[in-house]
Nucleic acid binder design. Structure first.
Lengths: 343, 343
DNA sequence: CCAATAATCTAAAACGTTTTAGATTAGTTG
DNA sequence: CAACTAATCTAAAACGTTTTAGATTATTGG
């Protein structure tokens, strides 16, 4: 255990005060009128002794850790890992580190994670929350800067970055209708109170309604977050056995879309001939699946960027107008083979 | 800015010492013979005042942060995000947090990240390194516990968790040979000195050699890490134009496999009729691509598990035998349509 | 009832930094 | 050269915890 070099060692070996070393270290030398030559001596000694600051001590003293927390439901879902990557890049450029937490859609775990991150004195939080109501965590969050991403809540003052789920679902609906499809199912995921799920569902349903299309209960399918793959297969099999198959399925996230693809293949149902498919959230591999899959594409990296930007501005105590606090990014529909009925 | 409750507040309001509160807080009450009743009073007061410990202060004092760093080339690559997820789960269970760093295969950035994480006093590091030689970071790492994953180095004493790349590449080679394929290309990625790339390449080449198959230079293709997609397409196009196409391609990681699939499709080359394809690292979506893709599957989650376990044991100063330090996990070949020539 | 022991509790230092509030020295002016 | 100003530097406190090394009080045996 080699002894760590501290600021005191530098000071002592130079015959100056710790204050002086600290000031030089933090580029406040000129500000405090410290002799250029002395500054150089300090810097040289720092090099010579290979000093590196103890950021825990610094964070302790200043109350600022230059760390942020990122809470999502599952970091191994590429939607979130791409957001994480962009957040990390921006954070790195600004001297911040990011600690990741996956909630598994568990509201209680999320609370514990927020608590833990606050005890760790993170400077801010970016959260894709699994709470039913924001109130469940608003006291926990207290005054810590935070940005909600992906999933939003109404009538709260927090900064929020999301995409236009309503527009996306509308485009999906209208596209299916334009293909002459009327018998449509929706594949959703629990918990249903999640804003993205709710918005996509409602907008989809009401868009269909404008063309007098209704989704019957048996085609309004809800899959639990855990063990999605098997659940999707079971539900679709049930549907097939019932003999009452829809002509199209709208899947509410990338996992559902993938599992749906797998299940339909297993059930020997042809896409799009037997059933058309369009999903929310695009993936690179949807371009080379059999068939290629239509999807609503989200500007994923932008979510990360904007969220970090909004967070940093809060951390720096900048004013953010009410309008700026609510970012809604545009989505795009990518039409591929899975939803186009060739006549 | 509401004043934070500290241990002193608890102590004062109860008329006891900070020491006592701290001991109770850390479950050392009984150990130090603190009256049960007093312990309860402390615990109750903690609840009442809603005290929560300042982990930065604690970390500062104890020198232990209960944080680990995870360094990979790109957290948005599902191979790494799945590892990250498992590491995170295990860490959470043991009271640790994990901060993620993506290197982009940049050895210099990786060094800075290690330096930064050490300044943050992380208790340990899990690293998928981009260094040419381990020596480049061995002084930087110093005595901090660490586990190298995925990419390994010879003749070092660090704990390492990797998969059997040699066996995997051999299986891929033998499988192609068993399909009667002799004209084989390899799609690799720079930097080539990465152990996984090196091992997979060498084992593949030497397996082919046993059947007197040689890979000519024009079929030994190296793609830069950045802008892979375009580079893959350009190289394959060049190959097609040359009129000298191989009968099969072995791709060295999941990204290469995906981009290869895209490029071959764009070039209207049929898989497996025109060119067979098998890749290292399996992805869920390889089951439903057109065609489904053969691959060498790695036990990804296990990498995360074993790495965290080895790290924690080091952090806890447990003895780890030389044998235990080197974990090599088995891989499996998953044969699908892309590599099976139907006669 | 005294001494010894057991039970319960605590004062103060320490961790490495930043920051507050000056102190000292050097230079300048009349 | 006295007095003031400018330039340069510093002592000590503070952040919230843990830990060391006892101190105090209560109990018990003889």
């Amino acid at each position: 255990m080699t002894k760590r070099i501290t600021i005191s060692d530098i000071a002592k070996s130079l015959g100056v005060s710790k204050t002086l070393v600290s000031l030089v270290l933090n580029n406040k030398g000129d500000l405090h009128g410290i002799n250029k030559a002395t500054q150089k001596r300090v810097l040289d000694k720092i090099d010579e002794l290979n000093y590196s600051p103890n950021l825990v001590a610094r964070g302790f003293r200043t109350g600022k850790t230059n760390t942020i927390g990122l809470i999502v439901s599952d970091i191994s879902n590429r939607f979130y890992s791409r957001i994480a990557r962009r957040v990390e890049d921006y954070a790195w450029n600004k001297g911040y580190s990011v600690v990741i937490c996956s909630t598994d859609e568990n509201a209680e775990k999320e609370k514990q994670q927020i608590k833990m991150l606050r005890e760790r004195k993170v400077d801010g939080l970016i959260i894709s929350s699994s709470q039913v109501k924001f109130e469940s965590i608003s006291k926990l969050l207290g005054e810590v800067p935070h940005v909600l991403i992906d999933r939003t809540f109404d009538e709260i003052s927090s900064a929020q970055v999301s995409v236009d789920n309503i527009k996306g679902a509308q485009m999906a609906a209208n596209h299916l209708i334009s293909q002459g499809i009327k018998r449509i199912a929706i594949l959703s995921v629990t918990p249903e109170y999640i804003s993205t799920i709710k918005e996509r569902t409602e907008a989809f349903v009401s868009s269909l309604a404008k063309s007098d299309i209704k989704i019957p209960p048996e085609w309004d399918i809800h899959i639990p977050f855990k063990d999605m793959e098997n659940a999707v297969e079971a539900e679709l099999q049930k549907l097939k056995l019932s003999g009452n198959l829809p002509d199209a399925i709208f899947t509410l996230n990338n996992n559902l879309t993938s599992y749906c693809l797998i299940a339909l293949r297993k059930l020997s149902l042809n896409i799009p001939k037997d059933i058309a498919l369009i999903g929310f959230d695009d993936m690179l591999y949807f371009t080379f699946t059999q068939p290629s899959v239509s999807a609503i594409a989200q500007p994923i990296e932008q979510i990360g960027e904007r969220a970090f930007d909004l967070l940093l501005r809060q951390v720096n105590n900048e004013e953010i107008s009410t309008k700026e606090r609510l970012v809604k990014l545009p989505v795009a529909i990518i039409i591929r083979e899975s939803s186009t009925k060739k006549s």
